[in-house]
Amino acid sequence: MCGMCGLLGGGNHWSNATAPLAGANPRRQRLIQAALANRVLMPFRLKLDDFHGRSFVLTSPTGASEMVNDFSQVWRVAERMLGRPLDPLTLFTDEAAAP
């Protein structure tokens, strides 16, 4: 998807709404949401960035990037980029998958 389509079309999924934080505007909340996701994505060498408050951009270790319309698509796109299943919950167990 091109950047303009991501800018105009994304952002309406329920997962993009975050609980209000005291003193945080919606833009800051999205940045916090991306930062929390990056804690899970970091061991897989993936990075999630906010795109103008409407979409996200997921970047792979090779530098490939893909527009993600809403937060629910992050894991699907991450699996496609990695070429294998990604279970974020395995990172918090004794048998964490190696990247």
Rank of each mutant, 00 (worst) to 15 (best):
T18Q: 10
N16Q: 13
A35M: 14
C2T: 15
A96V: 12
M67E: 04
A37P: 06
D70V: 01
P61V: 05
P88T: 06
L89R: 00
R45S: 13
K47V: 14
M42K: 14
M1K: 11
W75G: 00
T90C: 05
C5R: 09
D94S: 12
H52D: 09
G53E: 04
G11V: 07
R80L: 03
T62L: 09
Q73N: 05
A35L: 12
A34C: 15
A97K: 11
Q29L: 15
R27Q: 15
L21T: 08
C2L: 11
P88G: 05
G53K: 04
V68W: 02
N12D: 11
R27W: 14
P88Y: 06
S65R: 06
P99W: 13
S15V: 07
P20S: 13
A64W: 07
L8S: 11
A35V: 10
M1T: 14
V74W: 02
Q33T: 10
G11A: 09
F92G: 03
M4F: 07
K47H: 15
A37D: 13
R84D: 01
F71N: 03
A98F: 06
G3H: 10
L89Y: 04
A22N: 15
A37W: 15
R84N: 00
A19Q: 01
S55R: 02
L89Q: 00
F44Q: 14
M81T: 03
G9L: 15
V74E: 02
A24R: 06
N25S: 15
A98Y: 08
L41R: 14
R76W: 10
E66G: 06
R30T: 07
L86D: 03
R27G: 14
V74Q: 03
N25C: 15
D87P: 00
H52G: 07
W14Y: 14
D49E: 13
R28S: 08
N16W: 08
F44T: 11
D94N: 13
H52E: 11
A78I: 00
E79F: 03
A34G: 09
I32V: 12
L91A: 03
L82K: 01
S55M: 01
L31S: 09
W75Y: 04
P20C: 10
L41Y: 12
K47C: 13
H52V: 05
R76H: 09
P99V: 14
L48Y: 08
A97W: 09
N69A: 05
D87E: 03
M42V: 09
W75M: 04
D70E: 06
V77K: 03
P85Y: 02
K47F: 13
T59W: 05
F92I: 04
T90Y: 07
